[in-house]
């Protein structure tokens, strides 16, 4: 829950989709949800039923499409050029990083900029890892992210099940509370949380970063709940008749069916924690505990006389690669994630 970075503005726009969706959920809860068992109500209310008024402009002549074929061809070429230029501009900083990471000194300080350095210096990567124990940082990050993913998976799926597939007195009040926690800026709880963890003697350990994940976070609970609601109730009713307990139904029926949503949760949480800078900054002191995020900054500040850019860029590259690989492997899951959080209706 100390999701100091869950709402950071970069990565976060997709996940926080929720706040948007949340409005309709709250509205639904107030109106129809409590009384209605209809599953259709549980889906997304974004079906277009009537058209918005399109302002008529009488003065515009109906032109059809009179543009000549060769004019159209020209605009096509122009557009294609624009797309390629823009795409190149977006990845340019990353290409520059990769290029710098294998340069030698002369190439780094060469004007005009060298894009394809020759000879390349791949040993920068090995040398950079020796400037700071980057391998250790990497392992720390992996452990931290792994533990946090596990924590969120366990706690959020339990809570989401309780909030979606069971009916009990007080459920909707608690769920509204759960949604409301997402509205609160993390800065409000940041200081008391630090004092609590200090009193517990957890400073300079990963406990303040990992243990709260075993108590769930509003955003992921919401995400899973939305998915659980789409699983037909017939499955669990049949199991009920066969005498299965709720725990059995949860473990054997709902969880296996919810794999796509669980994958989204795991993926997002992995990205969040890999990216988390403020949390480790507050709680970790010893450099041997640092995750990649802190390690990278330590590296940057540890060049006393002169910053060796190729080293810094190769370390940066190493810190990004897991995410890029993960993203390329799971693009489908990402898109699913957007669908689940309600964007693609």
């Amino acid at each position: 829950m100390p999701t100091s970075d869950h709402r950071r503005c970069q990565l976060v726009a997709i996940p926080t989709t929720v706040i948007w969706e949340e409005r309709s959920v709250l509205a639904r809860m107030a109106t129809s949800y409590l009384s209605s068992r209809d599953l259709a109500h549980v889906g997304y209310p974004r079906v277009v039923q009537h058209q918005p008024s399109i302002r008529h402009n009488r003065r515009v002549k109906i032109t059809g499409d009179p543009t000549g074929a060769h004019k159209r061809w020209l605009s096509r070429v122009a557009l294609t050029a624009l797309w390629w230029t823009l795409a190149l501009l977006f990845v340019l900083p990353l290409l520059w990083m990769i290029s710098t990471s294998v340069k030698n000194d002369a190439q780094v300080y060469h004007v005009p900029p060298v894009w394809l350095p020759w000879p390349v210096r791949p040993q920068n990567y090995l040398e950079a890892l020796r400037v700071q124990p980057f391998g250790l940082f990497f392992l720390n990050s992996l452990q931290y992210s792994g533990a946090a993913v596990l924590g969120e998976l366990v706690s959020c799926s339990l809570a989401a099940y309780g909030f979606s597939r069971l009916r009990w007195r007080g459920r909707d009040v608690l769920f509204a509370l759960c949604l409301a926690t997402m509205m609160l800026p993390d800065q409000v709880t940041m200081i008391p949380l630090f004092l609590i963890f200090r009193a517990l003697g957890w400073i300079n350990t990963y406990r303040p970063l990992i243990i709260p994940t075993f108590f769930g976070s509003g955003y992921f609970i919401f995400l899973l709940r939305q998915f659980f609601l789409t699983i037909p109730t017939e499955f669990s009713e049949a199991a009920h008749i066969d005498g299965a307990t709720e725990l059995r139904i949860f473990l054997d029926i709902v969880l296996p069916l919810a794999k796509p949503a669980l994958a989204v949760l795991a993926l997002f949480e992995f990205f969040f924690t890999w990216d988390n800078y403020l949390g480790p900054l507050i709680y970790l002191d010893s450099t041997h505990l640092y995750p990649v995020a802190l390690g990278l900054q330590l590296m940057q500040s540890s060049f006393v006389e002169k910053l060796i850019w190729p080293y810094l860029m190769s370390a940066t590259m190493v810190s990004i690669v897991p995410l890029i690989v993960l993203f390329l492997l799971t693009q489908r899951v990402f898109v699913q994630g957007i669908a689940i959080s309600g964007l693609r209706g």
């Binding site: 990083m97 990216d275 370390a315 810190s319």
Partner: peptide
Amino acid sequence: FFVPSIVPAVASAMVWLW
């Protein structure tokens, strides 16, 4: 267009510093 947004904040700080 999407890849820059999955670059972690600290890494993008280093890239833009450069």
